[in-house]
Each structure stands twice: as structure tokens, then as C-alpha cells.
Amino acid sequence: MNQQPNDILHGVTLKMILTELEAEYGWEELGRRIEIRCFTHDPCLSSSLKFLRKTPWARDKVEELYLRWKMEADEP
């Protein structure tokens, strides 16, 4: 079986990522960190997920932010 034990994103959905980031930073801060309209103008989970699922470059930025946040949380 091909498992990826070191891949932090393995088994984590985009919805989980966005929910955690929004809880940690809030929409306003997310919009500052990643300047995309779905975070800066009437943000909500469903419209942001719809946009991110069809826009690879934006999804990549969200995943990168999530990974940086998780790495910082793991530091002593």
C-alpha cells in the first residue's frame, strides 16, 4: 500500500483546512494573508470552497498557509 505518513495534508479535506484557518485567523486576516475576493468580499465557507475547488493557484496558497500554520504550531 502506498501511504504518506509524512504528508500533513494526507486525509485532510479542503473544507477542514478552510474551517481551521477561518477559526484561527478569521476572514479579515485570511483576506490580508491571501488576497482573493472570496475572503475579502462577503466571505463564507460555501462560496470560498466553490472558488478554491476550481482555482488551483488559490487552493495552493491556502494549503501553503495551512502547512505554515501547522508547522509553527508544532514548534516548541
Rank of each mutant, 00 (worst) to 15 (best):
W27L: 09
E22A: 13
S46V: 10
G31F: 01
G26M: 15
D42M: 11
A58Q: 09
P56A: 13
R33S: 12
L14F: 07
W57F: 12
R32F: 09
T55D: 06
W27M: 05
Q3A: 09
L18C: 04
T13M: 10
R53F: 06
P5Y: 02
Q4M: 07
M1H: 05
I17P: 00
H10W: 06
E72I: 14
F39H: 00
Q3I: 04
M1L: 08
N6T: 04
E72G: 10
A73V: 04
R37S: 15
L67A: 07
K70F: 03
D60T: 09
C38I: 10
L67R: 12
Q4K: 06
R68L: 15
L21V: 05
S46P: 01
E64N: 11
M1S: 09
S48I: 07
P76F: 08
E20S: 11
K15L: 08
K54V: 13
M71Q: 15
D7W: 00
T19E: 14
K15S: 07
H10I: 01
D74R: 14
D7S: 03
P56S: 12
N6V: 01
M16Q: 14
I34P: 02
L18W: 01
E29T: 15
A23C: 13
I36E: 05
E63M: 10
R32V: 03
L9S: 00
E75D: 15
T40F: 03
E28A: 13
T19A: 12
S47I: 13
K50L: 13
N6M: 01
L30Q: 02
R59I: 02
D42S: 13
Y25G: 04
G31L: 03
W69S: 08
Y66W: 15
T40P: 00
L52P: 04
W57Y: 11
T13I: 09
C38E: 07
E64H: 12
E20R: 10
C38F: 04
R68G: 07
T55H: 10
L9R: 00
D74E: 15
F39P: 00
M71V: 12
L45D: 05
I34M: 12
L52F: 11
M1G: 09
T40S: 12
P76W: 06
K50W: 10
Y25P: 03
M1I: 07
E75W: 10
L9F: 00
R68W: 07
E63R: 08
P43N: 06
H10P: 00
R32Q: 12
K61G: 01
T55E: 07
E72H: 12
P5M: 03
I8M: 01
N6Q: 05
H10G: 02
T13W: 05
S48G: 15
H41L: 11
E75M: 11
E75K: 11
F51C: 10
